[in-house]
Amino acid sequence: MDYTPRYTQPFTLAEARLLDVETITEEIARLQNSLRLLGETQEMLREHVASIQPGEAVDGEITKAIEENETVIGSQSERISILKMALSDKGISAGSHYDFVPPPARVVTDAAARAAAPDDENDGVDL
């Protein structure tokens, strides 16, 4: 199956198929985080525009930012779709399991925990 994207993308579906599963899922997670942040920004910008009093001019830069963000949101959403198609082509269901990849848990060893804990005996620095 071939896919023609609506937006300019940094890779094609054929190129995405060459990536390993871990790279694909990490990129999906990165893009989803970016979309979440863009969505929050859009909400703030729209609230600002809505708060402008009648008769006041809307700052052209804010309008431009909203429009540019919409384009980026569309492009990144499309990129996620391409990556999910690549997973599907690898025989992996791109369902909810691959919608978000949490960061790996941080392992704290006993030595690291002791090093991070304050030394109550003296206020010096442990070396």
Rank of each mutant, 00 (worst) to 15 (best):
T109V: 01
S51L: 05
G74L: 13
I28K: 02
R46D: 09
P102G: 00
N122M: 02
A14G: 03
A94N: 02
P5C: 11
S51I: 06
G39K: 04
D110R: 13
D110F: 06
I92S: 02
Y7D: 05
G91W: 00
H48M: 09
R30S: 14
I24T: 12
E67G: 07
I92F: 06
Y3W: 15
A50G: 08
I82W: 08
A113C: 06
E61S: 09
I62M: 09
Q53I: 10
G74N: 07
G95M: 01
P118C: 00
E43W: 05
L45W: 06
S96V: 11
L45D: 13
H97T: 09
V107N: 06
A117P: 00
E27H: 03
A112K: 11
T63Q: 08
G91Q: 00
Q9P: 03
T41W: 07
A111G: 09
L13I: 07
N122Q: 03
L31S: 11
S81L: 11
M44P: 00
V58M: 06
P104V: 03
R79Y: 04
L83Q: 11
L83W: 09
T23H: 05
M85S: 14
I52H: 07
A14Y: 08
V125I: 12
L38Y: 05
G95E: 08
M44R: 15
T25F: 02
V107W: 02
E70S: 13
K84W: 05
G55F: 04
T23Y: 10
V58N: 01
L18S: 08
T71S: 06
I24R: 06
E47L: 13
P118N: 04
I80R: 07
L18Q: 15
V125A: 11
Q32F: 01
P10W: 02
R46S: 05
T109F: 03
E47I: 05
S81M: 10
Q9W: 02
E70F: 05
D123Y: 10
I73M: 11
E56S: 14
T41L: 13
T4Q: 15
T63N: 04
A115T: 08
F100E: 06
